[in-house]
Write a protein that binds this DNA or RNA. Structure first.
Lengths: 256, 256
DNA sequence: CGCGCATTTGAGGACTGTCAACTTCCGTGG
DNA sequence: CCACGGAAGTTGACAGTCCTCAAATGCGCG
């Protein structure tokens, strides 16, 4: 990798405050490589040789069982994937595939682990990165186990809205079938969930979704800062949430 | 905490190879405390002040939304919980409640973060711990998104069997309603899944489950080392799995 | 023994997935 | 420029899974 490319890695929180020396150690033998769309970079179950850093493009992380598969998350620049497998030098649990032409840096796992041993600050950054990833998976699990298809879609639209500056129009960043799988439903169910939201002021035209009534959407979504990154953290909502939790605790206790 | 209690923490991989100094820093101001059963230790959304280390007993980690709640995992000794929130000094995403009388060490979050800064090896241990937790959540998400109730229960029984030395009789470690929530179903569905397995040589008598025919159970479970910790990693199964993945990749590609 | 609680069983319905047909869109090539 | 083919998305019919509510059963403990 060239010097300027290595500097691009500083966009990652992981390398943001790393010393030049740590960056040099960590990226020893790293490759920078463009991949075409629809290219499988990594198959689940394979040993994880390299940490992947997505500098441009989109990569889908998915997993399969018994002939079906599901999208677990989608990486967008600048971010990395399979860090957990690299840290443990274990087999990958997910497959990775480009959704579009993507520019990817591949950093040898040994180099990452060496840098962790040498630089406590870097090891701390890895720990923080993994902590964030863990919490993301917790949010995702709560989303799937606690909400139905409509609520998941409604919150997803609110997430896109927040990421797009809270405008009335959002653009779906991936094909609908990918979004369906990410949200844990079939493409048909996604389509029906969209039309169900039609009565709540949601207009869908190809990849463009217009939100006419945010309140109506929020009534369905019931966003929660402990599940959704888009949910507001203001004191009122926190208080409501606590009250809810308290109430449900009481319910469980009284049922026992 | 007394010296002997602190030594108990060495049972954790996190502290296994820590220096005496790191252990001292990390456990500065730590408390060792017994809690009765059914006690809520931590409510989701609250700031995470302490890292909890479960030395004896059982603690359920659960989360709620819109009046319902779900069990995300259950901690067994010796293990810790809410490490991710501590590392990021963030609000807890899960509530914690004892299922039975439990002995718990509470380590101030500041002490943990300080130890991470001072000792690269400790920071690395935290990173490895979080990597393991992340991968556990990935497995759990795959389990929920890809499998139906019967397959989840069948794999859970195989997990218990593996943990119990592969005998024909396993004992359910928690109340059935807790297991149901952990597996993402209602108690009624768990009960019906159990009776459905009755035709496959599974006998249930209270908390005792007898597995008469492991092959029949495995036929339903279709265990996968990339989802289940109990699944064998032998070359044959790996080859089968790879073939499956390959096949599904081909399917997706040909469908495009 | 009787109460309380967990679990089971039954009935019914809501939700979601499957299968198939149809429409739309888009890029290709005549 | 338009016809065509293929894929994505939509719609309809249907089935199966799973949940909800309600009642019955069983078990443990005071």
């Amino acid at each position: 990798m060239r010097e300027t490319d290595i500097e691009a890695l500083r966009q990652l929180p992981l390398f943001e405050n790393a010393t030049a020396e740590t960056l040099r150690v960590a990226t020893a033998g790293a490759l920078l490589q463009p991949f075409p769309a629809e290219t499988t970079l990594l198959i689940e179950g394979a040993p994880s040789d390299c940490l992947y850093v997505l500098l441009d493009g989109q990569v889908e992380l998915h997993a399969s069982w018994n002939g079906s598969d599901t999208v677990l998350s989608i990486a967008r620049p600048v971010s990395m994937f399979i860090l957990a497998a690299i840290v443990l030098d274990a087999d990958a649990l997910m497959s990775a595939r480009t959704l579009e032409r993507s520019l990817i840096a591949m950093i040898p796992g040994d180099a990452v682990r060496t840098a962790m041993r040498l630089d406590p600050h870097f090891a701390g950054a890895v720990a923080r990165e993994l902590a964030g990833g863990y919490r993301g998976m917790v949010r995702s699990t709560k989303n799937i186990k606690l909400r139905n298809n409509s609520a998941r879609l409604a919150n997803y639209l609110l997430t896109l809205r927040a990421a797009g500056g809270f405008g009335a129009v959002v653009r779906l960043p991936y094909d609908k079938r990918v979004i369906a799988s990410l949200l844990g439903m079939t493409p048909e169910s996604l389509s029906r969930s969209f039309s169900a939201l039609g009565t709540q002021g949601i207009l869908v035209s190809g990849p463009v979704v217009t939100i006419r009534d945010v309140s109506a959407l929020e009534a369905i979504a019931k966003p929660d800062p402990l599940i959704d990154m888009h949910a507001p953290r203001c004191a009122e909502i926190r208080a409501d949430t606590d009250a809810e939790i308290w109430a449900s605790e009481q319910t469980r206790t009284s049922c026992r």
